[in-house]
Design a protein around this nucleic acid. Structure first.
Length: 714
RNA sequence: GCACCCGUAGCUCAGUUGGAUAGAGCAUCGGAUUUCUAAUCCGACGGUCGCAGGUUCGAGUCCUGCCGGGUGCGCCA
């Protein structure tokens, strides 16, 4: 069924054309929902602007538009009113609303009668979100990306687009040296009798002395260095490490303390002259830079066999995925291992990407578009400089100097910009719909083979990454734009960085634990569920409120309310602003919260339970809307599709939340003033039950798009 | 220094193709329960939309300058 808004757009569009001729051709009919109910349901604001263009009086133009409305429009509308400077106010006819909501009630399609996009309009949308890092626990910083991204993925799937989720796992980079080293220390520590707790303690101790004078911290560092050297010598071929890894079932419990230890050790060793010597290669490197050396080995840059490093890397990655998946499951997000496409995935493409940029962005080359990109070496690093048509830099550094995007370090290592370029290539390229004229043959060949298989062919790529990375994405998009990668026939591939503010504590600073650490997502979710459980138990302890839930029910309600509250609190706020985290606000039963919406849903379900015996299975879906509360509710239910469309365009889930809050509010008003089970006669009862049913479906679908499940009782 | 984001009621926030009298929740005050979940509903109070200009028939929204807060600015991601 076509949305009312869309029908009005078409009718008024036709009227514009027939009333004002070619002069109004292509003019936007400017239809919107009326903000104030006394102006009707929808309004057209096009007359004022057109009058200006045509040199006519706005109210007269409005009158012409109204007179030219096609017959079909008059079937759905009361006589339109012209108001103020030239607004046209539309009120939907009651019979039309009744027929529409009746059709929705009858259409048990799980989609509330909302059309999917036509096959030719269906897009391939790559949604890049969550992106945790290996060997790091997910914290509140990952929350927004994960749930906003998940919501948008759900919204676009609902519309009928082909959504490809991508979890750009941070699994390749300098920090991997540290992770591998951490595992190695764990292995070697066993022999010294060093436990996980010891590493934790050492990490604390080392961070404490990190800023002390070199002399003051030397004894401990020297001791750790000697142990390190001794361990290296005792397992020169790494065979002991190898068997340790083979048997290892890695977990964060052991990995994180050791990782902290490596971090703290290298930081504390910074500025000292302590070194270790590799027993096998004979190479000597600073104690503060062992991990860099290990990272180079992992990436195969040390010219040595790196299977051992790869094994360690794989183990750390597996442990991380187990941890993340547990959180994803609890959070109810769609991400699975199938969506993992981390940095390491793009590794085979990286050399080719650098080559491609070097040759495609040579200074003499013609590029289309406003901004041109120039790729050249600078201080040994491969850089892309973005320039305006007049040759001035688009991005400037602190001294006003041109700021490049680095795609290769002077030591030959690639950076995250390189990975992002490769990812863009993979995501947008397609063998038939969007083949690139790549200059680098090897790159084209690699891209054509598994696992890349010529790419995903995206029409739209959306990155859910925090605001601080804005500059990076501007550079990335400018670069791929200049390369011509985004031109797809007559269209341009839409690349969007969906950024969001930080999660703040009640002190308006970045949310931290009392000890000053970042808040782990795992702990946050657990606390939310516990608080929700306390609320349920408190209400169960009250004789008047008691519903007699079993223990299982209490836990299940707490889980849904707790997790739903955390997600909703985040989603209902405009993502551009920082948001102040407040347990009391998100778990409140009044206001724009998950519990309020869930409560509205539970009330509807309760009516069904109470009235179950009298509800006939032969669906009588004739709906009458005689009471203002019934009309207001029905109108809102019919507008879900319009909101979904808005959200898929502006990528602001709070619009959907506002819709649901308004919908639930209208239901509450209806509930107070319109008895359902004690309605006046069988027809009215059936009509109100149908209205309850479509409301419940709208709530369930809407909350479902936010990744929040509903409860029949609470 | 430059760039980007934010500044709306006492507090937390909506307000996105520029549209009519700027909206919620909390807090404060006053009402509603013989009825389907009162964890609710109805009402009152509360605003120089940071400041100053400009564009426009019309500006919280667009432009310019300023003030205040945040973030970022070459080999980390």
């Amino acid at each position: 069924m076509k949305a009312i808004l869309q029908q009005l757009r078409e009718h008024v569009g036709a009227a514009l054309h027939s009333a004002l001729g070619e002069q109004a051709a292509g003019a936007d009919p400017e239809i919107s929902r009326a903000k104030d109910a006394k102006h009707g349901d929808y309004q057209c604001n096009a007359a004022m602007g057109l009058a200006k263009r045509l040199g006519a009086k706005p109210r007269e133009v409005a009158q012409k538009i109204v007179e030219a409305l096609p017959a079909a429009a008059l079937e759905m509308l009361e006589t339109p009113e012209i108001a103020g400077p030239g607004f046209i106010n539309f009120k939907i006819k009651q019979v039309f609303l009744e027929a529409s909501i009746g059709a929705v009630a009858a259409a048990d399609d799980g989609h509330l009668g909302i059309d999917r996009v036509a096959a030719r309009d269906a897009q391939t949308v790559v949604v890049d979100y969550s992106s945790p890092n290996v060997a790091k626990e997910m914290h509140v910083g990952h929350l927004r990306s994960t749930i906003i991204g998940d919501t948008i993925a759900r919204v676009m799937s609902f519309q009928g687009h082909r959504v490809i989720r991508q979890n750009h796992l941070g699994d390749w980079g300098t920090q991997f040296g540290k992770i591998i080293l951490a595992l190695w220390h764990l292995c070697m520590g066993k022999r010294q009798g060093e436990t996980v707790a010891d590493f934790n303690r050492l990490a604390d101790e080392l961070s404490r002395i990190a800023k002390a004078t070199i002399d003051a911290k030397r004894p401990l560092l020297q001791k750790r260095r000697d142990i390190h050297q001794e361990n290296l010598a005792s397992d020169p071929t790494g065979s002991e490490f190898h068997s340790y890894l083979e048997a290892l079932q890695p977990s964060f419990e052991i990995l994180l303390p050791a990782y902290r230890y490596v971090n703290a050790l290298e930081e504390a060793a910074e500025g000292t002259d302590l070194t270790v010597t590799d027993a096998q290669s004979g190479e000597t490197y600073p104690l503060s830079g062992v991990s860099r050396y290990v990272a180079a080995m992992l990436q195969g840059k040390a010219g040595r066999d790196n299977t051992q490093e790869l094994t360690a890397w794989k183990k750390a990655k597996d442990a991380t995925l187990r941890e993340c998946n547990a959180i994803y499951r609890r959070l109810g997000v769609l991400l699975t291992d199938d969506d993992i496409c981390g940095e390491s995935f793009y590794e085979p493409l990286l050399p080719g990407v650098v080559e491609e940029l070097k040759s495609a962005l040579s200074a003499s080359d013609g590029q289309s578009g406003e901004i041109r990109a120039v790729c050249r070496d600078d201080k040994g690093a491969v850089c892309v400089f973005l320039e305006k048509p007049d040759g001035s830099p688009v991005f400037k550094g602190a001294q006003g100097d041109p700021l490049p995007m680095l795609i290769q370090k002077s030591d030959g290592a690639s950076l995250y910009a390189t990975t992002d370029l490769a990812a863009t290539l993979y995501r947008t390229h397609h063998a038939t719909t969007h083949p690139y004229a790549l200059r680098t043959k090897a790159l084209a060949e690699t891209l054509a083979k598994p696992p890349f298989n010529n790419g995903l062919g995206a029409d739209r790529v959306i990155y859910f990454v925090g605001f601080p990375q804005k500059l990076h994405f501007e550079m990335l998009f400018a670069t791929v734009g200049a390369l011509g990668w985004l031109r797809k026939g007559a269209r341009t591939i839409r690349m969007e960085h969906v950024s969001f503010g930080s999660v703040l504590g009640e002190d308006r600073k970045m949310l931290r634990t009392r000890a000053g650490d970042t808040v782990k997502l795992k702990d946050l979710l657990e606390e939310a569920v516990q608080r929700a459980e306390a609320l349920v138990r408190a209400s169960e302890a009250d004789a008047e409120k008691r519903r007699g839930f079993t223990e299982d029910e209490i836990r299940s309600i707490a889980e849904t309310v707790g997790i739903g509250s955390v997600k909703y609190a985040d989603l209902c706020q405009n993502r551009n602003t920082d948001y102040v985290f407040s347990w009391d606000k998100m778990l409140a039963l009044q206001g724009n919260t998950a519990p309020y919406l869930l409560y509205a849903y539970a009330r509807i379900r309760s009516i069904y339970r109470k009235g179950a015996e009298s509800i006939s299975p032969s669906v009588d879906t004739r709906v009458t809307l005689n009471h203002p509360a019934e009309r207001a509710l029905a109108m809102k239910v019919l507008q879900l599709g319009e909101i979904v469309e808005v959200v898929s365009d502006n990528l602001l889930p709070n619009f959907l939340c506002d819709y649901l809050y308004d919908l639930a509010g209208r239901f509450m008003t209806f509930y107070e003033s319109c008895p359902v089970l004690q309605a006046d006669g069988a027809a009215e009862k059936a009509s109100r039950l149908a209205l309850c049913d479509v409301t419940a479906r709208a709530l369930r679908i809407g909350l479902g798009l936010l990744g929040i499940s509903t409860l029949d009782r609470m």
